[in-house]
């Protein structure tokens, strides 16, 4: 198949964790198709850690630094590098930035693209990909008929290769673009974003009101790296910002642990979180549909259950 190019996601100079998983997927793809090198491409003033990227799966890293991120510029750089190294596949992260680039890179390479892959395989030397459709209500297995397989990988489904290797670092030029990122606003510090977190607690209408969100925050504070999410009912009521919404018209998440507090489990909410590894439901109605999807269920009032949960989690997390 030739080599695999992985477009790293870089923000604030740092390579995002999802990129390490994409590198692991690239390593697997290279092995499944008879060997080939894995090249990582970093843009946007990346601080590149050659041993971390090498361990995750990269043989070499190309750095195309730009002062300002440009989506069309980054896509043009990726497509050029893919041609230069004769890539048989280009892999990205299924993050907001990865999504932004996926279709463009495929268009530039005159090929098809597959977003949000959760499984990778090969048959007769040709890669195939499994991905959710209809918000996870079904899965499709696909093959790309174009010359290059362009695909993105959903966070928390793949792992870095975990090898002991150091990647060779080289510079390359960045292509200019017309759409340019000129700044960031409303940066939320502290808690990770729901789309990236490996642990999430989400609150629904059963929380009763925004004044009760400290109960959610206390649980999140008890577990390192836990993000807070919300149902659409809560976002529509203005209790929480839209960027916290999980579901069909919000974010799709697949964390290791998803705690749903006071959420009924409507089909559109499930669409966004049903691929979570472990789901905990806390609801005062034992008939609530969320319990049919939960790994563990607790029937009870969030006002009583959540403070106890925060306490117990704090005890469990401290050595």
């Amino acid at each position: 198949m030739g080599s695999v190019l992985v477009v790293l996601e870089v923000r604030g100079g740092k390579v995002r964790p999802a990129s390490m998983e994409a590198l692991g997927a690239a390593r697997t793809a290279a092995e499944l198709t008879g060997g080939g090198t894995v090249t990582a491409l970093a843009t946007d003033a990346a601080e590149v850690d050659a041993s971390a990227l090498g361990a995750a799966g990269a043989d070499q890293v190309l750095v195309a630094n730009t002062e300002q991120h440009s989506s069309d510029g980054a896509a043009a750089t990726a497509a050029r590098v893919a041609r230069e190294i004769g890539a048989g596949a280009v892999f990205l992260t299924a993050t907001i930035r990865g999504r932004d680039l996926l279709g463009r890179i495929a268009a530039l390479l005159n090929t098809g693209f597959v977003p949000d892959c959760i499984e990778l395989g090969a048959e007769g030397g040709k890669l195939h990909f499994v991905r959710p459709v209809f918000a996870g209500k079904a899965l499709i297995r696909v093959r790309i008929n174009g010359p290059v397989a362009v695909a993105s990988f959903r966070p928390n489904f793949f792992r870095g290769a975990g090898r002991s290797a150091t990647a060779a670092i080289q510079k390359t030029t960045a292509e200019p673009g017309k759409a340019v990122v000129t700044g960031l606003s409303g940066e939320r510090k502290g808690r990770p974003d729901v789309a990236e977190a490996t642990k999430i607690i989400s609150g629904g209408r059963g929380m009763g009101g925004p004044e009760n969100w400290h109960l959610i925050e206390a649980v999140a504070d008890a577990v390192p790296g836990m993000a807070t999410g919300a149902s659409r009912a809560v976002v529509d009521a203005g209790w929480r910002p839209h960027e916290e919404q999980v579901g069909q018209t919000g974010k799709t998440v697949s964390p290791e642990l998803y705690i749903a507090a006071g959420i009924s489990g409507a089909i559109q909410h499930l669409a966004g979180m049903s691929t979570s590894k472990v789901i905990v439901a806390i609801n005062k109605d034992k008939e609530a549909p969320i319990f049919q999807h939960a790994t563990y269920g607790v029937v009870g009032d969030v006002h009583q259950v959540l403070p106890k949960l925060a306490d117990e989690l704090k005890k469990a997390s401290s050595p």
Partner: peptide, 8 residues
């Protein structure tokens, strides 16, 4: 974007 708004 994850954790912020990007201005483009």
């Amino acid at each position: 974007v994850e954790g912020a708004h990007e201005i483009v």
